[in-house]
Computed example of a mutant assay.
Amino acid sequence: MVDGLLGLLNPMASLSDMAPSGVMVERQVVRSLAALVGFDPATADGVCTSGGTVSNLIAVLAARNRAFPEAWEKGVAGMRPRAFCSEDVHYSVRRVFGIAGMGSDALTAISTDAAGRMRVGLLEEAIHLARRAGESPFLVVAGAPSTPIGAFDPIGAIGAVARAAGLWLHVDAAHGGGLLFSERLRPLLAGAAVADSFSMDGHKMVFQPSSQGWLRFRHGADAYAAFRQRVPYLLGPDGADSDFDAIGKSLQCTRRLDALKLWVTWHLYGSRTLGGWAEQCVATARAFYQRLVDHPDFEPVHVPACNIVCFRARHPSGRHDDGFHDALRARLLVQGNAWVVLTTWRGERLLRTAWMNPTQGEEQVAAVVAALAAARASLLAAG
Rank of each mutant, 00 (worst) to 15 (best):
Ser14Asn: 02
Ser16Glu: 15
Asp17Thr: 09
Ser21Val: 07
Gly22Trp: 14
Val23Asp: 05
Met24Asp: 09
Phe39Ser: 03
Ala42His: 12
Ala44Gly: 11
Asp45Trp: 14
Ala59Cys: 08
Leu61Phe: 04
Leu61Asp: 02
Ala62His: 07
Arg64Lys: 09
Arg64Gln: 13
Asn65Ile: 01
Ala67Gln: 10
Ala67Asn: 03
Pro69Ile: 09
Trp72His: 11
Trp72Val: 00
Trp72Thr: 04
Gly75Leu: 05
Val76Asp: 03
Gly78His: 11
Met79Pro: 00
Arg80Phe: 09
Pro81Met: 08
Pro81Trp: 10
Ala83Asp: 09
Val89Thr: 07
His90Ser: 15
His90Ala: 15
His90Thr: 10
Tyr91Ser: 15
Ser92His: 12
Val93Ile: 12
Arg94Met: 06
Val96Tyr: 02
Phe97Gln: 06
Ala100Tyr: 01
Met102Glu: 14
Ala109Ser: 14
Thr112Arg: 04
Thr112Cys: 05
Ala115Gly: 11
Gly116Thr: 06
Gly116Ala: 02
Val120Thr: 15
Val120Ile: 04
Leu122Cys: 01
Glu125Arg: 12
Ala126Leu: 02
Leu129Ala: 15
Arg132Glu: 14
Gly134Pro: 10
Phe138Gly: 03
Val140Arg: 10
Val140His: 06
Val140Asn: 01
Ala144Ser: 10
Pro145Asn: 03
Thr147His: 13
Thr147Leu: 03
Pro148Gln: 08
Pro154Met: 05
Ala157Thr: 00
Gly159Cys: 08
Val161Ser: 02
Gly166Trp: 05
Trp168Gln: 02
Val171Cys: 15
Asp172Lys: 02
Ala173Leu: 11
Gly178Gln: 12
Ser182Met: 01
Ala190His: 11
Phe198Gly: 05
Ser199Trp: 07
Asp201Gly: 08
Lys204Pro: 00
Gln208Thr: 03
Ser211Tyr: 10
Gln212Ile: 05
Gln212Asn: 11
Leu215Glu: 04
Asp222Leu: 11
Ala223Phe: 01
Phe227Leu: 15
Val231Asn: 08
Ala240Glu: 09
Leu251Ala: 13
Leu251Glu: 05
Arg255Ser: 13
Arg256Gly: 11
Leu257Ile: 08
Leu260Val: 06
Trp263Pro: 00
Val264Met: 06
Tyr269Ala: 05
Tyr269Pro: 00
Gly270Gln: 07
Ser271Cys: 00
Ser271Met: 10
Ser271Gln: 07
Arg272Asn: 13
Gln280His: 12
Val282Ser: 03
Thr284Pro: 00
Ala287Asp: 13
Phe288His: 03
Tyr289Asn: 06
Asp294Tyr: 02
Asp294Arg: 00
His295Trp: 02
Pro296Trp: 12
Pro296Arg: 07
Pro300Phe: 11
Val303Trp: 01
Ala305Leu: 04
Asn307Gln: 15
Val309Arg: 04
Cys310Pro: 02
Ser317Pro: 07
Gly318Asn: 05
Arg319Pro: 00
Asp321Leu: 07
Gly323Leu: 14
Leu333Cys: 04
Gly336Pro: 12
Gly336Ile: 11
Val340Cys: 15
Arg346Ala: 09
Gly347Thr: 04
Glu348Lys: 13
Arg352Ile: 06
Asn357Met: 06
Pro358Val: 12
Thr359Gln: 14
Gln360Pro: 00
Gln360Arg: 15
Glu362Lys: 09
Gln364Ile: 09
Val365Lys: 02
Ala370Gly: 08
Ala370Tyr: 02
Leu372Gly: 11
Leu372Met: 14
Arg376Gly: 04
Ser378Gly: 15
Ser378Asn: 08
Ala381Ser: 12
Gly383Thr: 01
Gly383His: 04
